[in-house]
Design a binder for these strands. Sequence first.
DNA 1: GTCTATAATTCGATAGAC
DNA 2: GTCTATCGAATTATAGAC
Lengths: 196, 196
Amino acid sequence: MVGTTAREAAAGPVRRSDATRATILAAARERFAADGYERATIRAVARDARIDPSMVMRYFGSKEGLFAAAVGIELHLPDPAGVAPEEIGRTLVAHFLALWEENDVLTALLRVAATNPAAAERMRGVLREQLVPIARRVCPDPQTAPRRAALCTSQVLGMALTRYVLRFPGSVELGRDEVVDWLGPTLQRYLTAAAP
Amino acid sequence: MVGTTAREAAAGPVRRSDATRATILAAARERFAADGYERATIRAVARDARIDPSMVMRYFGSKEGLFAAAVGIELHLPDPAGVAPEEIGRTLVAHFLALWEENDVLTALLRVAATNPAAAERMRGVLREQLVPIARRVCPDPQTAPRRAALCTSQVLGMALTRYVLRFPGSVELGRDEVVDWLGPTLQRYLTAAAP
DNA sequence: GTCTATAATTCGATAGAC
DNA sequence: GTCTATCGAATTATAGAC
């Protein structure tokens, strides 16, 4: 990783700056996920990435630009078309779990969203705008789709909060299968049950 | 409120400093709830409380001391003894909702807990140590009480997060009765259903 | 009790040499 | 592209006059 030479830099389209960018972004995601926005300093990110702090500014312009680049990647939920209607709850929970444990993006987003309006807005977009369409397809009354999606989001984000951010022992201890078994029926009910 | 005289100060056990303390704490709770720990500055709290920033230091020693005093109040859940077993879920949800909307303490605690370990620890104590005993009483298998309590906490905190911190429209729109109707059965199942 | 002044850090951001 | 040096602003916290 370290020690890129001029030969490598000239060998192809993979410039050294791309590797540097990727290294910075990975370090930034870790720091934002661990410390939140204000306590994750550019200096600390640079130290983790083994580069000079001024390089972070050069590549991303500002701290806000760094954060936007660190969490600005695509996230997609499964297409509900290929899923049995009675399995949509469990499928969604399993997919969310995989998404959260794949990398630090969602944890960083959630932790920062608690104090940063821009992150909260992005969180809204990531989760709600992908969940509402799904809810609209599977719920009995399309008018209630936004509320059903919000209920699902509350349970999913709550589990993510206690499991990955606050690290409550009771939530961390749960195996992935257990989470699916418990939360799956909850989302299933929020999406398909008759409104109370 | 302003203009306390020497006569008042000498009239009884209610010293002016007590009123000042209370004013500072109320302002601190608002600021912490709105901005989180790092962005809620002592200067801003003092400005809201219409006093000098140095007074905050004098009364509470440090910013950490101020936060501890602002969120260090008793919170109690209902005694499950007087509740019908099949109504425990709805009762808990209703009580939590009232607790969250009563004042800013829990919102401040949740927002700060996302980045402050001490606040996360306190959140753990407030919710878990009160919920686990309840779960132990009503669940079929006492061994599973910590996990059942964690599941309940995840749903309650998730709703609080989307409703009071992130302010997702879908969650904010929900009436209190709707929240009880939807989340009540969820907690009921987490507490009393056979483990999957 | 109250306020002014300031110390001591820390951070984001910039300028410029190489 | 990379690094040194530093500015300017904001913060917590303290010392001391009144």
